[in-house]
Design a protein around this nucleic acid. Sequence first.
DNA 1: GTCCAGGTCGCGC
DNA 2: GCGCGACATGGA
Length: 316
Amino acid sequence: MVRQRSAKPPLAGSIPAVASIPVPPHFNFAATVVSHGWYLLAPFRWVRDEQTLHRPEILSGKAVELRISFGGNALRVEGADESEELRHKLGRMFQLGIDTGEFVALSRNSPAHAWVESSGFGRLLCGATLFEDVVKIITTTNTMWRQTMRMTELIVEKCGRKTKSATAFPTPEDVARFSPDELQEDCRLGYRAKTIHALASGIADGSIDMHALSDPAQSTEELFRSYRELPGIGPYGAAHLLAMDGRHDFIAVDTEFRRFVRERYHGGRAVSDRTMLRRYAKWGRWKYLAYWSELWESVAAGLEPDVDRVQAQKDE
DNA sequence: GTCCAGGTCGCGC
DNA sequence: GCGCGACATGGA
């Protein structure tokens, strides 16, 4: 055996690397992937027919291509060996460290949310790093979903580390090598180019400390204020980032939220933000998830035309 | 041409 | 603290 191996050594990489990552209670893979629009943004690629999420990722400083699916009781990750770094990155991507039990329990008491438990709704797909999610949130502001997808695609393409056939999401250093003008011109970022460049270079030069900013020891209110210090992040972005930490106390009020509540509960008539928010007060620290679940279900049921997503699906 | 989209920022009061 | 316009881009 030894002789055989030394006579004909396996090519490096010829043994397919596979990692298995355990998941918490109430976890549902597909429901988490399509929980919101992130799965449509580069470098994620969701192959629905195969129930596999493709994702180029940097591990040990090297870009590799991951194929993530669900088998048995764990995430099955092809393309990587098990490592702390992999567990950490996938833990953030799938919110594996978040206990959604209380939300599930609350949803049992609401007829409109009775579907939550069996569907596995409750976790939001995230980027591998806070930086990635901040950049993506900035590209969602004051624009249309179609343009968000394009901006993200171009950022990845221009700045990210390449494998043979895919490109990983860039690090702050990868983005900061380019000038704001170059980012604007090549990634069609508009005025966001300055913001994204300031974010990337701030992290790269140490003036923005993402680790300290996102310290989970902070109260939710403190964390909200921390996120708001980031360039390009206002109340909407901060609430979205909190949700990615599994903290749903604040609803990200945007045109989508206003439209949904107006149409669903007020017969299309305009009402104040305060009135809209009051509807979700009873959900305590699960407000955003309660709202998002209502929107998600209505889109899934085809009751709510979500033009951007529908359009995106057509392009697949 | 005009308006505006999963907002944010800086300004003036 | 609150209202308001500017901000790049591209679709409606």
